[in-house]
């Protein structure tokens, strides 16, 4: 609208320059959006406004028609499209869809635990590798044309990757079942954390069920360990020292009278995603208690808001994943008892 008004009031000779300005502005905004969303290492330390831009004011209620699979993970792209990992017993795929359900890109045959769009327009997928052909756990970079640009295969389903992100130095940070590794483009491991197998809690490097590791601008790594009986989120230095941690890796027993998920300060039941803001705070989505938790840079609780009541009226069968956009807004992927799935933006009250 604004561009049209400018153009309509300008004489033909005067049109060129404003058009260029608009063009430059669009390029700049697009590049900024890519930086924010495609390079989480940079994007995950932004103010709330920088982090989500206009996304925080979007009304998102995406509904899937598929019944044979479910949205295991998604990413909100700068275009407003969703990149969805559909997993399940038939027709698994990663697909980019518009909010009204148009599929603009898909890569079938992968049981993806995560998918991100890279700055170069390619997609970075973590394929759990099983079951189904080709049953190879791998991290792969796929072009918009569907060509395999880069692939890091793992020899066993015990190493089925859960999350991967491309770092600014072109390395790839990969979250495995019991280990986090940073690999170069030629697949050399240059940094790792964890034992690669279950070890008892308390042993340095213990990871119960990590689902996300993301590199921060200070060189540290933010780790979300979903856990087995309770989770935790912590920040690691390159020397593998924990700077701060929220959650203990355990969770207190629920009250037998209610059995409802209740967020308990200091604990995380099943964290699935965390993002660090430029003010030093971190946002954590705890799927186990359906809560969005803000903690300080030292791991102290700032705020808890729950989305439990927001979904109470819906016949939700399973919630799969949640992505905080602001301390009060969260995108949640869930399947209804009809077996149709939705990704819904929830605005929460403090």
């Amino acid at each position: 609208m604004f561009a049209w008004l400018i153009q309509s009031k300008l004489k033909p000779k005067q049109i060129k320059q404003p058009r260029l300005e608009i063009f430059v502005l669009v390029i700049f905004l697009t590049a900024a959006a890519y930086l924010l969303f495609a390079f989480p290492a940079i994007a995950l330390e932004a103010t709330t406004e920088e982090l989500v831009g206009q996304a925080s004011s979007l009304a998102i209620d995406y509904q899937e028609d598929f019944k044979v699979n479910h949205p295991n993970f998604f990413d909100l792209l700068p275009s407003g499209n969703l990149l969805i990992c559909r997993v399940g017993y038939q027709k698994p795929a990663v697909a980019e869809v518009t909010l009204d359900g148009q599929e603009v890109w898909s890569f079938p045959g992968v049981q993806a635990n995560s998918a991100l769009r890279l700055a170069n327009g390619n997609y970075l997928l973590t394929d759990a590798g099983a079951p189904g052909s080709p049953y190879i756990p791998r991290v792969c970079e796929v072009s918009p044309q569907g060509n395999m640009v880069w692939e890091h295969r793992f020899s066993s389903l015990t190493q089925a990757p859960r999350y991967a992100e491309r770092l600014a130095n072109s390395h790839t940070l990969i979250t495995l079942p019991f280990k986090i590794i940073e690999v170069t483009p030629d697949k050399k491991v240059v940094w790792s954390y964890g034992w690669g197998k279950p070890v008892p809690p308390g042993i340095p490097g213990h990871l119960a069920c990590p689902v996300q590791a993301t590199r921060l601008t200070n060189g540290n790594t933010l780790v979300v360990d979903r856990g087995l009986v309770g989770g935790r989120v912590f920040e690691l230095t390159p020397q593998k020292q924990i700077v701060w941690q929220y959650g203990t890796g355990t969770y207190p027993k629920l009250e037998p009278s209610t059995q409802e998920p209740v967020s308990k300060p200091g604990y995380l039941k099943q964290p699935v995603y965390a993002v660090k803001l430029s003010d030093g705070h971190a946002l954590i989505a705890d799927l186990g208690t359906q809560a969005l938790i803000t903690v300080s840079g030292t791991g102290k609780l700032i705020n808890i808001v729950s989305w439990q009541s927001s979904l109470a009226a819906l016949p939700v069968l399973n919630q799969w994943w949640a992505m905080p956009l602001t301390p009060e807004k969260v995108l949640v992927a869930f399947t209804l008892t009809s077996l149709r799935s939705r990704i819904l933006l929830l605005s929460l009250e403090k």
Partner: peptide
């Protein structure tokens, strides 16, 4: 049947990608 629970002596987490949902999880 499924999901695959153990491989090479290590616990796996395959239930969701094998399409299990609802109270089965």
């Amino acid at each position: 049947a499924g999901p695959l629970l153990v491989l090479e002596g290590q616990p796996l987490w395959q239930g969701v990608v094998e399409g299990f949902r609802g109270s089965i999880l």
